[in-house]
Each structure stands twice: as C-alpha cells, then as structure tokens.
C-alpha cells in the first residue's frame, strides 16, 4: 500500500501552502479610508480658517495645499504602519472594517467637493 494514500476513515485536512490572515489587508484598507477622510477634513479646515491655512502653508508657491496633502499622507502612512503591526498575524472582522473604510472614503470625497464644503461653512 502506498503510504501517502489515506487509510479508510482517515480525515484529510488540506492546509494551504501559506495561510495569510486578513489583518494586513484590513490595515491597508482602513488606513486608506482614514487618509482620504483626513485629506477632506484638512482641506475644509484650511478653507475655513486663515490661521489653519497659514499653518498648513509648507511651501509658499503651492499654498495650504502643500500642508493639507503632506499632513494627510504622513498620517495615512503612520496609521497604516501602526495598524499593520497590530494586525500582522490576526484575522479581523473585515466586514465592519470595510464598511468603516468605505464610509471614510465617501466622507473624504464629499469634503473635497466645494459646494458641500461651502455648505458646511455656511457660505
């Protein structure tokens, strides 16, 4: 009898060669949602407040856009790094994380839309 063949009644568990938990993907997805929302929030803040706009003017020829985007990207990457470390080997509730990330993405898009941003500021 071939030793590699299972004997009658023996249960076979097929393990994938490399099982990847969904944690790293969830970290990337949620961080991208957070980054998008931060971009929108900072854009509205810079538009609404002159001191914030001045604070976010990292490069004068580009104006507040330089700080809005630099800070959003920095916080996106830091968030991604932290979440990726925490969820590196974990399987997380991906449904809730996806829903949160997509809501944050939608918020980011909405906040960058000038008529909506103006509405928030009562313009």
């Amino acid at each position: 009898m071939n030793p590699s063949q299972p004997q009658s009644g023996e249960r076979i568990t097929i393990q994938p060669a490399e099982f990847l938990p969904n944690g790293p993907a969830a970290a990337a997805i949620l961080a991208a949602g957070i980054g998008s929302a931060l971009l929108g929030i900072l854009a509205v803040a810079a538009d609404a407040s002159k001191p914030v706009a001045k604070l976010l003017t990292f490069y004068l020829p580009t104006g507040p856009l330089s700080g809005v985007t630099s800070v959003a990207i920095l916080l996106w990457l830091v968030t991604w790094f932290i979440l990726a470390r925490r969820w590196r080997t974990r399987t997380v509730a991906i449904g809730k994380i996806n829903a949160t990330a997509i809501l944050l993405l939608a918020l980011g898009i909405l906040l960058t839309f000038p008529p909506f941003a103006d509405l928030l500021q009562g313009k």
Binding site: A28, I29, A31, A32, G35, S36, L39, G40, A43, L65, V68, T69, A72, I73, W76, L105, G108, I109, T112, F113
Partner: peptide
C-alpha cells in the same frame, strides 16, 4: 484635493 485620493487608494 480630490486628485490625491486616487494615488492613496491605488497604492493600497
């Protein structure tokens, strides 16, 4: 502003 969401999303 909205343009920056595209590279963030595709990088992910």
């Amino acid at each position: 502003h909205v343009a920056w969401i595209a590279p963030i999303a595709v990088t992910m």
